[in-house]
Computed example of a mutant assay.
Amino acid sequence: MTEMPVHDATLLERYEAFRTRRFLRNEEKFRNMLPRWRTRRRRRILVVALAATFVLMFTVGVLCHFFERGPLLWLPACLAFFPLWISLQIVSGRQGDAPRAALDEREIQERNSARSIALTVTQSLVMIPVLYLVVGSVLTDGMHPRMAYAGGLMTLTATLIGGCLPAMILAWNNPDPDETD
């Protein structure tokens, strides 16, 4: 049996190296953007606003069950979500989805803890639309015209919450940056 040379990286290792290079390049590019929003207080404002947007998104999903024009409310929710999410990612340094090689041991531990919490929350939240769809389909014999759309929006919202939660947790908990950095 012949061994492969050490310099031949696996596909995953090459992808992780690419992600790290891209992350560091983007970190350098966005490092000085939104400097006044990098304080803990301002990051917490973004986290609360993002949470309020998720409440709006879930509410729109529920309203879609009852009102034919309910989906029109999804646009304002998205118009609020995208700038809030992008701003939070910039001011928190994208620590929630940073590649392992770009973080120190403490940051890796904090990120992994936030991801673990996010997974648990996602699994719990997704159960709400799943139960709605399963029970609702049984009760209506699958004939409710807007049930799939409403359940889809609720599921999408739960998934977005899970994807955003690590960054939200880290942005909420991390101290203010050092003035010397």
Rank of each mutant, 00 (worst) to 15 (best):
F30D: 13
D178K: 12
F30R: 04
T155N: 07
G136N: 03
G61S: 07
F54K: 00
L24R: 14
R31C: 04
G152T: 04
D181H: 09
H144D: 09
V6Y: 12
V126M: 15
I90A: 02
E16K: 10
T10K: 12
I161P: 02
M57Y: 06
F66G: 07
G70F: 05
L160E: 00
R94M: 11
Q123L: 15
A118Q: 03
T2R: 14
T140Y: 06
F23G: 01
E179P: 03
Q109N: 02
F67L: 12
H7Y: 14
M33E: 13
V91D: 01
F30K: 05
D97M: 10
A150P: 01
A52K: 01
L84T: 02
A9S: 09
G96S: 06
L119E: 03
E27S: 11
S124C: 08
N174W: 04
T159R: 04
Q95F: 03
S92G: 13
A80L: 15
W74C: 00
D181I: 10
A9P: 00
G93W: 03
R94Q: 12
Y149E: 06
V6D: 15
G61E: 09
A98S: 10
E28Q: 13
N174H: 13
I90P: 01
R38N: 06
E68L: 10
L133V: 08
R100V: 08
R106Q: 12
L165G: 02
M143W: 05
A98Y: 07
L84I: 07
W85Q: 11
F67G: 02
Q89H: 11
T20E: 15
T39D: 03
T10F: 11
V138E: 01
I128N: 05
I128C: 05
R100E: 15
T10H: 10
L125R: 01
A158P: 00
Y149P: 01
A167N: 14
I117E: 06
F58P: 00
P175E: 12
W85Y: 15
M127F: 09
A17S: 12
A17T: 13
A98K: 04
Q123R: 10
G151P: 02
L75Q: 07
D97G: 12
P166Q: 08
F82G: 05
C78P: 02
M154Q: 06
Y149I: 00
W74D: 04
L24I: 00
L165N: 03
G70R: 01
R19F: 05
R14N: 09
L156D: 00
P35K: 08
L88V: 08
G70E: 06
W74R: 00
F81E: 05
V6H: 13
C164G: 01
T159A: 14
V62C: 02
F58G: 00
D141S: 13
L165H: 04
T157H: 02
A171G: 07
V134C: 09
A80R: 03
R21Q: 12
M154A: 04
G142M: 09
V91S: 02
A150Q: 01
A167H: 03
M168S: 08
S137Q: 08
L50A: 03
G162H: 05
S92D: 12
F58Q: 03
S87A: 15
F81N: 01
G152V: 00
P5L: 13
V135G: 05
R115E: 08
A17R: 15
V135D: 04
L119T: 09
L139Y: 10
F82D: 06
R94N: 11
